[in-house]
Design a protein around this nucleic acid. Structure first.
Lengths: 199, 199
DNA sequence: ACCTGAACACCGTTCAAGT
DNA sequence: ACCTGAACACCGTTCAAGT
């Protein structure tokens, strides 16, 4: 049967390329995610990758899609904007240079991303409809800025370009995130309906 | 006189290298700021640059220093935190990929940057002393995130990777910045000195 | 349909050697 | 003191040619 699928399985496919890219990202950082490195880990010539992805930028966009969870996962159970922002930040911090990958390749479609959708849904009771996309974008930008700065510092420490304790730096960033997020959401929902307790 | 200065002026010096790097950044973007490109524009071999700067990262840090204005300029006349943030954002947007340059090379010393100093000074009446560095960092991260996302979009549009109007995108980012900054500062200074009505 | 081989036009950085 | 020349170990991408 000539039209049978799997009659001759290919050495690599798109998913394998994306998965390997994500693994290199986690283990060595964005600087080591090169088409040539990727190809050699997959046991294939660099030019072979271009049958499956059109270029590196498109590949990194697919990696970004893997980093950012779908909207339902971001929303979780409590459906609050604060928890969406926290979950997004955790997802970015889970992968080395995750914030930079998302910021630099995902920025184009940030407005239509699962992160934006989840945030807008969570903002629904507190923020007027026509202001929701703007507020969601602002929150997203704060999360990305906070995570990017932290990961930039962690990378600098790991490369010996900066002295500092990773744990201390992470704790400081956590505090900056909490303070900033609380203020941002309080400022935006200050005409809130029920008296909410801080977490 | 053997010890006379200027007896034989060198072809390039550190300032000329930094100035040329900033010019290439403005005209062509960060991707075009390479040591080889820099050298050829200065009429010198690439290896010559390494007499004046230790590596590319250090060079980009010097470029970042040129992008971020000194604290007195950021503070201006009104001395408000909002205007410091606005002036910093303007400075970042003045140079192509300015936010990325500052975010990626300046992040190490962000806490001791003129931007942080100016912000902390502006926050002085409204925010308690021990919380000021944290709040200043959060504001900085929002400014960097907002400017980075906008410039990433502008770059994508210029390279034809995304359809969109630069003016429209800039206007949207401006609105997101205003809303986010207002909320952030309102949320942070809500326990202001005069008796405020609370809910 | 999928991959190889070879090439093109680049990178950052080092280091002996020149002046 | 400052720069050249040459090299090393890399990049992303294209494209004819193979199977």
């Amino acid at each position: 049967m000539p039209s049978e699928r799997n009659s001759r399985v290919s050495r690599v496919d798109r998913d394998a390329i994306v998965a390997t890219a994500l693994r290199i990202l986690d283990d060595f950082g964005l600087a080591d995610v090169s088409m040539r490195r990727l190809a050699s880990e997959l046991g294939v010539q660099p030019s072979a990758l271009y049958w499956h992805v059109s270029n590196k930028q498109e590949l990194l966009a697919a990696v970004a899609d893997q980093i950012v969870p779908p909207a339902p996962v971001l929303l979780g159970e409590d459906l609050s904007a604060a928890s969406v922002a926290r979950r997004l930040r955790s997802a970015l911090l889970t992968h080395r240079d995750g914030a930079e990958v998302v910021l630099s390749t995902y920025a184009l479609s940030l407005g239509t991303s699962p992160a934006a959708a989840a945030l807008q849904a969570a903002l629904r009771p507190a923020v007027a409809a026509e202001l929701r996309p703007t507020v969601a974008a602002a929150v997203l930008q704060f999360v990305l800025g906070n995570a990017s700065v932290l990961q930039q510092r962690l990378t600098a420490v790991r490369f010996g370009a900066l002295s500092g304790d990773e744990q201390v730096m992470t704790a400081a960033s956590d505090a900056e995130f909490r303070v900033g997020l609380d203020a941002l959401l309080a400022g935006v929902t200050r005409r809130a309906d029920p008296p909410t307790a801080r977490s």
